[in-house]
Structures are given as structure tokens and as C-alpha cells.
Design a protein around this nucleic acid. Sequence first.
DNA 1: ACCTCATTTCAACATCTTTTGAGATATTGA
DNA 2: TCAATATCTCAAAAGATGTTGAAATGAGGT
Lengths: 109, 109
Amino acid sequence: MNELQALDAFASLSQETRLRIVRLLVKAGPEGMPAGGVGDAMGASSSKISFHLSHLERSGLIQSRREARSIIYSAVYPALSGLIEFLMKDCCQGRCDPVEKNCADTCTD
Amino acid sequence: MNELQALDAFASLSQETRLRIVRLLVKAGPEGMPAGGVGDAMGASSSKISFHLSHLERSGLIQSRREARSIIYSAVYPALSGLIEFLMKDCCQGRCDPVEKNCADTCTD
DNA sequence: ACCTCATTTCAACATCTTTTGAGATATTGA
DNA sequence: TCAATATCTCAAAAGATGTTGAAATGAGGT
């Protein structure tokens, strides 16, 4: 991930609706969920949701596929890892010890 | 780090000048550097730099202290770690293996 | 007290982003 | 083909953010 991609990813995640969409789709897993389902979960109009889904897809954090009448959105996990990696490597340079208390702890949710 | 703080941090990092300031200050280390030095490094006007430094400080990513005539800015490493942790934990839920793969191995379901 | 230097503040302006609502497009089943 | 469902597109309005240059503040030296 380069600086431009990171700027774009940060811009995507700096918007409340979009951040929630990403979290929802991460929870939804690789199967993803249809645009309408996302809209229902957010309680937002279809055009609003469509706008934010497009924004997120353009910045590479989510992807879509058509399935019958629905368009299914899902998280692009490597993009999120890439962003984490960018923050750790290019931005923090090892000075920002993140969850050094290993992953296993944080993942027992 | 909660959602609101994360939104604020992402907004801060989604601006080119600000992202570069953060990277510069991380490189500068805990000593930090004066506002003027940041401005010189960026080739930007003092008011522009001041605006972005304030923005970053308000969102908690950097801090300042006066030293004689200068105001010294420095990175707040825990804030950056907190953001990384937020991304890994609240946003990725162990599905986004970052730099080390061990996380994915232990955490994906 | 006065003069610099370093930085911030302010208001006006320009630009970018988000929301809204109406209409368009695509897919399926009758 | 027609109606229903799901989603997208578009333009206008509203809102938020970034830039500029001039003026204000605050600290130190003479």
C-alpha cells in the first residue's frame, strides 16, 4: 500500500456510515451481504448507502458481486491488512507497539 | 480507542499534509521538532502548517510543548498504537492478518 | 520598553464531500 | 411482455474542510 492508497483508505474510514459499513461487512465474513441488508442495518436511504458502498469499493476496502437481483458486498481483508501494515511500518516505524500482547488475546471475542 | 476517536484519527490521516507531518514527527522521535521546522520540511506557509498541526493535536495524534520561542510538536505513539489496535480488533476481528501471519492462523474462525 | 522571531488567529474565499429525492437500470418470475 | 424488486445514477442543495494573507500574540534579547 502506497501513500495515495492509504490517504484514500483513511478518507473512507473517516466517515461514520462508511466505518460502520466496513465493520458490518467484516463481521459478515467472506460471504458478505446485499446492499439492501447493509441499508437496513444502517437505517439509511438506498442512494446514501449506494454512495458510501461505491466510495468504499473505489478505495478497495470492499468488493461486490452480483447474485440474482442483489449486489453482494464483502470486505477485502488484504486491503485492511495493508492499511494496518502501512500504519505500523511506514507511519509508526516500530515505535508504536500495537497489540504486542499478541493476537490470541484480542481475538477471543 | 472508541469509534469517535477513530473517526477523528482517520480524518486527520486522510489529508496529505497531515499524513506527512505525522510521518515526519514519528521519524523525529520523542524529541519532536518545532512548528517552523515542520513548515520548512513541508514547504508550506506558517498558517497552513499551524492549521494542520492544530487539527492533529486536537485528534490526539501529536502533542506540543513550548520551548523558548518555539513550539515543539511530537508524535503521540500510544495514539497511533491505539488506532492500529482499533483496526485490528474492532474493525478486522482477526480476519486481517497484518504483518505477521501468526495472527490469522490463531484467530480466523 | 522596544524590536525581533516564532507561531497562531481570523475572516473571506475556494473546494470537496455528503445528503436528498426523483428517475434510470438490471434481474427475476408470472 | 409486464410488474415487482433491488440497486444505481444524477443534479441540486447543504454542509464540511482547506487555503490565503493580514493582523495578533507571546517570548527572548538589547
